[in-house]
Design a protein around this nucleic acid. Structure first.
Lengths: 338, 338
DNA sequence: CTGTTAGCGCTTTCAT
DNA sequence: ATGAAAGCGCTAACAG
């Protein structure tokens, strides 16, 4: 168990630590015979480099950081594992470790988590998700000139790399299609936090309504948590309006599912009495009843893009900030006929 | 941006690095005045310790590792984020970082990931989930005498710490109750991998059937992926049997949802024509229609238990392996009336 | 080709 | 109360 070090190999072979190191690293200025000997001995002795020591010496950690907003103890997010898979698989392939920190959003803990990772040189770069309006994390990383990539754009003209899904356009299209099939009172279930993607989507919503000269009743825009419960409550509030909307767009599939339940409880059917559109297209979406009409985000690929971009940035291979705006795919199923 | 080191503070103040280090660490053998000066200067200069250097010196990383099995690119697991939240929040509170590695299960990559973390002394301990029959990861960690905790027991009499949910008893109870309300042909949707929890659950299933002298038709035990699609396919196979089961137990809620869809496609209703029981009680379970009858695992708390135990182990505060067997809670909703 | 030397930034005896 | 020195395990510049 006691760890074998370069020195142990060197002493055994009567070589210097340097030579052993270079033999293992495959440098060309080591005699073939020596190299073989070293390789074999290292194998025999079960040598494995101490990564911490290597990191200190190389002045990099070969690690990327990912700070996750956690909303309460029941943080159940089907997208999250898929995003992590995308990031993690690519990171592993490129020889990077992934450090995940969990914090409640927009708190002092969150700030401290970032400080720790950045200032403590704990990681070489950061991936940041769910960008917020006037995002202090973005601000901080920009100040620190620390490599990072975000999933989602931010306010201001900051120059940094991001990957995003064009929710504005996606929602614009969906609202157009809802209007085309006869809807006029269209509601939008928004999150209860100033998340950027929701702003863009709302913009698309308003643009489409305006485009058709349809008025937007502000009580159609309801703010709730991005959960099933949030969607449920939001839909309830909408149903209590004097003349409820006939179509509802939500900010994720969980909200849509909650909304559908609120409808069912009143004897209404999603897709018949009220159209419900989700966002994300989690695997569950096509299996529930009624199957969810939704806007797909290719989340695994987004994870890969984020990771690939960050690694390029860390390696200094990126001269300009990288921007990628993906188009969401409208997936029509039963909860809204389009 | 250039990192401030202890030496920079020392030089500025005309002190030695040693004194600065001790002042910052709060040692008592530093003059109060000196301490104040150091603290203030460190603050001014924006000092933050280089964690890698500290780790190398202290011979520990204050990091725990978590290797996640990833099944294909659409790895969407609502439980996963919740487990991670439980682990991560507690780790952060105790001053530990969390390193997450993603690998496909039971491959050479997986073995290499463990080797790397353990032999490279990349982390101080590991959390391992979904223990498998004859689990080579457990074997490896035991050989290496490396601190680890598992979610799930394993075969053999290995002495290591684990947290588990008593699926055997939970399923036993559920089957009893299904039988009590008249079911006799009861099926079990198993995973397509040799995961320990499925073995225990199957044991509970067989015990309950035997207890009531009911025969078990081996074609009622179907092996599929732990996904909605898996549940869907499994249910289809069951429905093709000459006399299909009237009740189905699944190994997670996603499978149950897939199974319900297979029923619906044939015009059958879960909870009326066929009873469907899930496992886990993900937040979605109560929002879909029909609402899922299921066995709840308190997954966030399990994450905390795992993390707490591992940290105790790392700190040498654990003399005996720690074992915790939690009872799942039967949550009766619409998909199976019990 | 191989070894010597220096150093990554920190902590920790051990003197003084 | 403070500092000098050693060392964690590795890599790299520079001699020879």
């Amino acid at each position: 168990m006691s760890a074998v070090r370069l020195r142990d190999i060197a002493e055994r072979l009567g070589l210097s630590v340097t030579t052993v190191s270079r033999a293992l690293a495959g440098y060309s200025d080591v005699a073939e015979q020596t190299r073989q000997l070293v390789l074999q001995t290292a194998q025999e002795m079960g040598y494995y480099p101490n990564l911490t020591a290597r990191h200190l010496q190389r002045q990099r950690t070969d690690t990327i950081g990912f700070v996750v907003d956690i909303f309460g103890p029941r943080f159940s997010d089907p997208l999250f594992s898929e995003l992590l898979a995308g990031i993690g698989n690519l990171a592993a392939r490129e020889g990077f470790d992934l450090l995940v920190a969990t914090t409640p959003p927009d708190t002092d803990d969150e700030v401290e988590a970032y400080r720790r990772l950045v200032r403590g040189r704990r990681v070489d770069g950061l991936i940041l998700v769910r960008t917020r309006v006037a995002d202090r994390r973005v601000q901080f990383l920009l100040e620190q000139q620390f490599p990072f990539v975000t999933f989602g754009r931010s306010t201001g003209a900051e120059r940094f790399s991001w990957v995003d899904v064009d929710g504005e356009r996606g929602v614009y299209e969906v609202v157009n299609r809802l209007i085309a099939v006869g809807h006029q009172r269209i509601a939008l279930l928004q999150p209860d936090l100033p998340i950027m993607f929701a702003r863009f989507r709302e913009r698309g919503y308003r643009a489409a309504m305006a485009h058709h000269d349809l008025p937007v009743n502000e009580s159609w825009i309801v703010h709730e948590a991005l959960t099933e419960d949030g969607g449920y409550r939001g839909m309830q509030r909408l149903l209590e309006l004097p003349s409820p909307p006939t179509a509802v767009l939500t900010n994720n599939d969980q909200m849509a599912i909650g909304a559908i339940r609120a409808l069912q409880e009143r004897g209404l059917r999603a897709g018949h009495d009220v159209a419900v559109v989700g966002f994300d297209d989690i695997p569950l979406a096509r299996h529930i009843h009624p199957a969810l009409t939704t806007l797909r985000q290719p989340i695994y690929q987004i994870g890969q893009h984020l990771c690939r971009t960050l690694i390029a940035l860390i390696r200094g291979e990126l001269d300009e900030p990288f921007h990628l705006l993906l188009q969401p795919e409208i997936v029509v199923r039963e909860s809204a006929r389009l």
